[in-house]
Design a protein around this nucleic acid. Sequence first.
DNA 1: CATGAATGAGTTTTCATTCAT
DNA 2: TATGAATGAAAACTCATTCAT
Lengths: 194, 194, 194, 194
Amino acid sequence: MNIHSHVPLSDKRTAILEAALDLFVERGYHGTAVPAVAERAGVGAGTIYRYFKSKEDLVNALFRHWKQALAGQIIAGVSPTAPPREQFHQLWGGLARFARNHPKVFAFLELHHHASYLDEESRATETRVLDLARAFVARLQDQGVLRPMPAMAIMILVYWGLVGLTRCAQEGRLDLTDDVLVQAEECLWDAIRA
Amino acid sequence: MNIHSHVPLSDKRTAILEAALDLFVERGYHGTAVPAVAERAGVGAGTIYRYFKSKEDLVNALFRHWKQALAGQIIAGVSPTAPPREQFHQLWGGLARFARNHPKVFAFLELHHHASYLDEESRATETRVLDLARAFVARLQDQGVLRPMPAMAIMILVYWGLVGLTRCAQEGRLDLTDDVLVQAEECLWDAIRA
Amino acid sequence: MNIHSHVPLSDKRTAILEAALDLFVERGYHGTAVPAVAERAGVGAGTIYRYFKSKEDLVNALFRHWKQALAGQIIAGVSPTAPPREQFHQLWGGLARFARNHPKVFAFLELHHHASYLDEESRATETRVLDLARAFVARLQDQGVLRPMPAMAIMILVYWGLVGLTRCAQEGRLDLTDDVLVQAEECLWDAIRA
Amino acid sequence: MNIHSHVPLSDKRTAILEAALDLFVERGYHGTAVPAVAERAGVGAGTIYRYFKSKEDLVNALFRHWKQALAGQIIAGVSPTAPPREQFHQLWGGLARFARNHPKVFAFLELHHHASYLDEESRATETRVLDLARAFVARLQDQGVLRPMPAMAIMILVYWGLVGLTRCAQEGRLDLTDDVLVQAEECLWDAIRA
DNA sequence: CATGAATGAGTTTTCATTCAT
DNA sequence: TATGAATGAAAACTCATTCAT
């Protein structure tokens, strides 16, 4: 999947973002040199600065892009009128599909969770997504479908469960098959349903 | 809790390890300058190199120390003869107490792009601990107490659930009270029991 | 004479090599700071690392370059068919001219003789040059022109005589005029001829 | 031979000077760390500063001590009334014996020739010795025994010849037997006699 | 637009020297 | 007197960023 779904504003911009994603996940933000990003992207080091004001600007663009993409995909996949268990199935399916298609993105988004180089706008994006999710959980709790406990805790158990599965799969410690994803869905539904 | 449980071999060594833990969690390994560690530890920059061969040696010492401390505390807390639900209670209690007492350690241990700077010995320590846990889970699965699915996946859902709770608590997004921990225990037991 | 005889691949590289030569002779390898080399070369400190992997790489490049240049100039100047005394005259003339034109190089090559920071390739270069010279001396000994004694000793008396003359001239203790060089040639020929 | 011929003021001082000599010859002045000298001397690092004001003070003490020892031994060995060839024999014998007994000292004295860390007193010592030698050579030139050329040049050919022989012997490139030393004496006498 | 050579501020690390014991 | 842990200044080296081409 391309970073620019519709209009590839620039192949180079995309190449830079993809290279940056790879390296930030592999070595972390501070452990990644800008010339290394340029080399992997197949562009000159100076070129990066035509598309991004700075290294910090680059990591923030990457973060916001994917955070929004993830939120959008999840929201689009969940039908507001479906019954709760079906909604959870759609939600988990969306998350799992995303984690499967973009395992590096998934690792990146948590790696850089709340990091000092994320700017106000990125934090705002993060908070917006969280608030959306919290409202969704709270509504189901009001309906008595989910357990009465902090909505945040419910979200965490589900989301970080998938983070853990994805990371361990990336490290080769777990084979993240469809079966395992289905089993995990069942587990987590049992974890949170009232 | 002191890094040297019995004999504080050296106050400075301990101070350095504690300062390094704080900063590695706050800013990451590559984002942390050695003089910053020294300053927070209240020692001269050169002093760090009297206790650790290099910055890499320091992060590895820190990792191994705490990985072993965590494993030791958990193992010590679980009675091999207790009934399964009680064993899970002991396990979760040990983990939760550890995460509560050393939230930074808990964050640090999973702060992975460790991949690039952890040495062979540290990886071996990690693998040893994992194998221990896997054996424990597999035994309960054989007894039909836990769901038939990859043991690793079960471990991940529980462990990363707590990682998520701890990290979000650190970020101020969640108030990790005893109540929440008890509720989470109930959730996760329902997640994994057969 | 330029370090790049034909094509000055890079003015900066040459400037760095020349600055390094000056400083290594003045203050020794370990006594010379890389930024000092940069300053004398009129480049930024980081620039040195665009042309040389490390300080050690720099000193080795310098050593090999000049060792080969010296050997080449000597070999080119000696006619294989000339009578022995004439060959010695050519040899001495070549050496003396080199020492006169590049007194610092001459000092450098002996200063760094067998130093711990010279790598395998540099030692190989050194050995190759020495073997060439030894063969030359041995042939003249076989012809009964030079005294029967270790070829190495003969080479040393001539070569180190010139090293001493050059070094003392550099220190201002001796005025190394053409006359003195001619007289020294006469002395050393009498020293080694049968 | 002990650094303090008569009264061993202190074993530690001697041990330090001997260790420093070894290391300065092996790695140069700037390449030698004071703690490394202490370790080889078998004393604490701080102890060095009870005997020498600084590293520079240490290298100067070492230089002066051995320069004077060398000069003294040579002077003592040459009989002012002997015939010239015999005087040269005594001189060469003294030098050669010294170089044989203390090859590292011989290397050290020229390695550190006129280096920037030698102080005024060390330079004065050097100059005094040179002037003595120059007067000796000049007298023989006046008698028509040695060639009419700068006295300094004559001294250099002889002295640096031995320096070269000693250094190459140390490097293992030459076996410096008594035979070779006798042959070299003959060579150098032929080099300088009128 | 795109580049990559150049740079200096900042990083990790070493070491001469001090000083409490 | 002797020590060696401690240190900060300075070393080698890296890298985000700029700018001439």
